[in-house]
C-alpha cells in the first residue's frame, strides 16, 4: 500500500515537471516578441535590448526555464505584463472564486450523479429509468454554455429571480446575495456532469447487479435491498471514483466557459483575458494551477480507490 502511494506520488511529480516544461515551451513560441510587446511600438533597439537583458530573455532557454521553475516553486510567477502587478495574488483571488464554484458543483455532481445512476440501475428498463436516461441524454448532448444562456434567459431575464452574472461580495451583499450569484453558474456546471456521472454509474451498477457474486447473494436469500446496498453498490462505486476524477477535469474546463457566460470573475475569465492579451506569465501561472488541481484530484482519486479496493489495500496473503 505505502509503495503504491509512493509510486503515485512520484508519478504525479514527474507529470507535473513535464507539464511545466510543456507550458513553458509553448508559451515561448508564442508569436510576438515579448520585449517588443512590453516596450511598445515605438521603442528603439536599445530599450528592447535592455528589457531583454532585464527579463533574462537572452539566456539559453533551459536557464530561463530553470529560473522560472525555481521562482514558480516559491509561489512567484513573475509580474503580469499587461496589468503590471504580481501574478500570484491575482491568480489566488480568482482561483478562490472559481474554487467556490467548483466545490459546490462537485458536491452536487457527486450526490446527484451517483444517486441518479444507482436509482436508474435498480429500476432498469422501468419508466423511471427511461425518464432519467432521457434527461441524461439531454445533459450530454447540449453544450453547457447553451444551458447557461437558457438559464440566464429564464431565471434572470424572464423571471428576474437571480442575477445574470458577476460575483457577489460576502461582506457587502450578505450570504444571500453572495449565494444568489452562485446558483446559476453552479447549476449550469452541474447539469452536464451529472448526466455523465449518472450514465457511467448506472452501467457499472448494472454490471455489478448482473455479476456472479450478486447471484450468489440472492441464492443466500438476502433481501434485495441489502443486495443492492451491501453487495452491488460497494463494488460499483469503485469505477465511479475514477470517473469523478476525470470529471474534475471537465469541471475545470467548463468553468472557463461558464465564467465567460456569467461574467464571473474567476480563474477562467482571467485566463481568457490573459490569452487575448498574450500576457505570458499570467497564462503560464493559470494553466499550471489548473493542471496542478487536476493532478491532485487524480491523485486523491487514486488513493481513495486504493483505500477502498481490498485488492490493492491488502496484497496476497
Amino acid at each position: 500500500m505505502s509503495i503504491y502511494i509512493l509510486r503515485r506520488l512520484m508519478g504525479i511529480t514527474g507529470v507535473l515537471v513535464v507539464i511545466s516544461m510543456l507550458v513553458f515551451a509553448i508559451t515561448q513560441i508564442m508569436p510576438g516578441d515579448v520585449a517588443n510587446v512590453l516596450a511598445g511600438q515605438f521603442a528603439d533597439d536599445a530599450t528592447i535590448a535592455a528589457i531583454e537583458e532585464r527579463l533574462g530573455l537572452k539566456d539559453p532557454f533551459y536557464v530561463q526555464y530553470f529560473n522560472w521553475a525555481v521562482s514558480a516553486l516559491q509561489g512567484d510567477f513573475g509580474e503580469s505584463m499587461v496589468m503590471e502587478q504580481p501574478v500570484s495574488p491575482m491568480i489566488a483571488e480568482a482561483f478562490g472564486r472559481s474554487l467556490v464554484l467548483a466545490f459546490f458543483a462537485f458536491i452536487l455532481v457527486v450526490i446527484f450523479g451517483i444517486g441518479i445512476g444507482v436509482w436508474s440501475a435498480v429500476r432498469r428498463d422501468k419508466p423511471t429509468d427511461h425518464a432519467l436516461s432521457m434527461f441524461s441524454y439531454l445533459g450530454i448532448s447540449v453544450p453547457e454554455f447553451f444551458w447557461g444562456i437558457v438559464c440566464v434567459l429564464l431565471f434572470a431575464r424572464l423571471l428576474g429571480w437571480l442575477p445574470s452574472g458577476g460575483a457577489g461580495n460576502l461582506s457587502e451583499d450578505g450570504l444571500l446575495g453572495w449565494s444568489a450569484h452562485l446558483v446559476l453558474p453552479v447549476l449550469t456546471l452541474t447539469f452536464t456532469l451529472v448526466a455523465h456521472v449518472s450514465r457511467l454509474t448506472r452501467s457499472s451498477m448494472i454490471e455489478a447487479l448482473d455479476s456472479q457474486y450478486v447471484l450468489n447473494a440472492r441464492a443466500k436469500g438476502l433481501p434485495e435491498r441489502h443486495i443492492v446496498r451491501g453487495h452491488a453498490l460497494r463494488n460499483a462505486l469503485l469505477p465511479s471514483i475514477t470517473v469523478l476524477a476525470i470529471d474534475v477535469g471537465w469541471l475545470l474546463g467548463n468553468i472557463v466557459v461558464v465564467e465567460a457566460v456569467f461574467s464571473y470573475p474567476g480563474l477562467g475569465r482571467l485566463l481568457l483575458f490573459a490569452i487575448e492579451r498574450h500576457d505570458l506569465p499570467l497564462i503560464q501561472a493559470g494553466i499550471l494551477v489548473i493542471a496542478l488541481v487536476y493532478c491532485l484530484a487524480n491523485l486523491a482519486a487514486d488513493l481513495l480507490y486504493a483505500f477502498l479496493n481490498p485488492k490493492i489495500r491488502y496484497g496476497q496473503l
Partner: peptide
C-alpha cells in the same frame, strides 16, 4: 502511456486553449 498521462493531465479544454492560445 507516459506521454498520454501528460496529455491527460490537462483538462480537455485547457489543452485546446494551450494550443490555440499561441497562434491566431
Amino acid at each position: 502511456l507516459r506521454g498520454c498521462d501528460v496529455l491527460m493531465s490537462f483538462p480537455p479544454i485547457m489543452l485546446g486553449l494551450l494550443i490555440l492560445a499561441v497562434t491566431p
